[in-house]
Amino acid sequence: MMIKLLKQPQAIIGFLFITSLLAFSFYWPNLLDVNKTEALKLQDFLYDDEGRIIDAPPYTPSQVPPLGSDMFGKHIFYQVIDGAKYTILIALGIALFRILFSVGITLINPKSNFSFLNDIVQATLYIPTAILTFIFMNSLIVKQSMEPMSALKFIIIQCLILIGVGIPPLISTFSNEIKAILNKDYITNTFALGSNKVYVYYKHVLPELSTKLVLLYAQQVVQTLILMAHLGVLAIFIGGSAIVVLGDIFAPMPVAIPLAGEWAGIIGMNFAKIKAAPWTIITPLTCFALLIFALNLIIQGIQNCLETNKS
């Protein structure tokens, strides 16, 4: 299948885009020849040549090339580049765990109907995933404010929520697929010849599922990315947030800023300022759109492969 995938130009373009973005995100201080702490520092005011203050943040793209700055004076361009690696790796990781857990749970008892999970799946059709996740995340934040927990534990619970939200629909997909495979004649024969369950799952069921798994994995990555963007707008930041007080002494304005630099956090942090500084939102959103487009190219490539396999 891999060789066939190499013949799909669109899949290769998508793959190259994502890998180069990831590599660039890790090595940008060297490649662009800038100091990382220097580029991401807070910049209070903008001075002209004679040292006079000419403007306060947020700066427009023409004042601070190439993409302007947010309300703390941080360069959006460097933030986006630096955040790419967190965004991509979180999405890839969460999608991977969703697939792994749901295949694992299904294989424990493939014959069962999972009627309990089926109820949840039926209900989640009518509740948007973002709201579902928000309910859990909000409770988590309330709990954390009452009894503080360590940052690592907080992040792990957040990731578990993100993983758990995607699992019920996946299990119902997998249980249908695996049931169809287990009903095939050669599987019945293998059992009749005396092989044990683990052997059959490992040797026959998983290879037959593998192409489907890759496709579902890519789709899950896209869904995770969209979910992250939605959560960013709702001011739920993966990796926790800190409260910073902006504004003057008479009108203090507490603003939550994310601690991890992923794109959803940039969107959420600047969302209240959309009318004043639209470039702070549109840049990370465009990046999300491009990333999702690259993933969709890969999905298209895989689907083309599957179609040629069938015929």
Binding site: Q122, A123, T124, I127, S139, M146
Partner: peptide, 26 residues
């Protein structure tokens, strides 16, 4: 039948946050 399944599902989802993170958040 479908409605029963939906009501059960929504009930589970509604109770879950309180179960996981304690009732004092509610």
């Amino acid at each position: 039948k479908r409605l029963r399944s939906i009501i059960f599902g929504i009930l589970i989802i509604g109770i879950m946050p309180a179960l996981l993170f304690g009732t004092n958040t509610q």
